[in-house]
Design a protein around this nucleic acid. Structure first.
Length: 310
RNA sequence: UGGUCCAUAGUUCAGUGGCAGAAUGGUGGUCUCCAAAACCAAAGGCGAGUGUUCGAUUCACUCUGGACCUG
């Protein structure tokens, strides 16, 4: 606890392949602390190469949390993440240390930093399946009209094409009897004030350079045996629709293994999907007003980061 | 050498004598329980020239480029 009554937290975020892992470990060594991952795909066991998971050597003895916490087939989401990661942060802070939250999943970081309430009921699979069926059989517009009738504001916020969110909004209303648009308005206010005394670093570098690093890293992953890793998951029968198999690198290679495209085409797709992903990560972080942007393309940013600390 | 066909967005293709469309890619953005997911938006074009015509991307001719056929 400090003067403003909040616990201290360091966040190292940024797009894929920008160099988060290396920097976070160095910082953790200097501060003698622990790292909590904020990555939606590194939570899955057996997905190491493609998610660029830290290796034992790279960890340098620094404890890492929220990595390998579940099996690839299981349901994992923001809610589970927030619950588990919050406990980890508490534990580290109880030891008198400043935890480092490191990762590229903006949604997960936001949920944790602003304590977003996702409600405890969890996904209602039967209802979701039923609503998806309506979209398939009667059309997305029809499903959207159902939402418009109960929560016009949410319908306005989500186009009919965004079935995933339309379903969620209807689900929310049916389960809680409350409009998700009202709920979101309340949660949105939290975004103004972080729950931690935070130093939120976003690593970046010139787009051209970053894209080159992404291409190089994908090539390296292939050499390191990404295809074997995907084969293993496929042979274990991990369903293609599972969140884990949606991961970049896995999805495309699984498609190749099923004969949908050549290996070369799959690799090209992995690269372009990674670039798009990096772009989306950046737009996510741009919206957050509490960030400190660090250019990693101009020498070692380590000292600059340290200067921003308490 | 002679002949036939083709030329429209970065790419693959629609189309019309009267505002030129799609897919894909590239770019930007949205996001409150699948988020490495899902979704949205704007941008971008008739190879060059001459003629016919009120008006040509469309018709005719020339040129350029490409594909195919041809002693």
């Amino acid at each position: 606890m400090n003067d403003c009554g909040k616990k201290k937290l360091i966040i190292i975020a940024g797009p894929t392949a920008v160099g988060k892992t290396d920097l976070s470990v160095r910082l953790a060594k200097k501060l003698d602390t622990e790292i909590v991952s904020a990555d939606s795909m590194q939570v899955y066991r057996g997905m190491d190469i493609g998610t660029a998971k830290v290796t034992k050597e790279e960890m340098c003895g620094i404890p890492h949390h929220m990595i390998d916490v579940c099996e690839p087939g299981c349901d994992f989401n923001v809610f589970s993440y927030r619950e588990m990661a919050k406990k980890k942060l508490d534990d580290i802070q109880d030891k008198g240390k400043i935890p480092i939250l490191c990762g590229g999943t903006g949604f997960y970081i936001q949920a944790l930093l602003y304590d977003i309430d996702f409600r405890e009921e969890g996904p209602n699979e039967e209802l979701r399946a039923q609503l998806h069926k309506i979209a398939e059989e009667k059309g997305k517009e029809e499903l959207w009209r159902i939402l418009r009738d109960v929560d016009p504001e949410a319908a306005k916020a989500h186009p009919a094409g965004d079935v995933k969110r339309v379903v969620r909004a209807i689900e929310f209303y049916r389960v809680h009897g409350e409009k998700i648009s009202d709920h979101n308005k309340k949660e949105e206010k939290k975004l103004a004030e972080p729950c931690y005394d935070v130093r939120f670093f976003v690593l970046y570098r010139e787009q051209k350079e970053l894209y080159q690093r992404i291409d190089d890293r994908v090539d390296r992953m292939m050499k390191e045996g990404l295809l074997e890793e995907v084969k293993e998951l496929v042979s274990r029968g991990i369903p293609m629709e599972s969140t884990a198999m949606q991961a970049i690198g896995y999805r495309q290679l699984a498609a190749h293994l099923k004969g949908a495209c050549s290996l070369e085409e799959a690799v090209t797709k992995i690269k372009s999907d990674s670039r798009h992903y990096a772009k989306r990560q950046l737009t996510w972080f741009k919206r957050d007003k509490n960030t400190i942007w660090i250019d990693t393309g101009k020498g070692d940013p380590f000292d600059e980061i340290c200067r921003h600390l308490w």
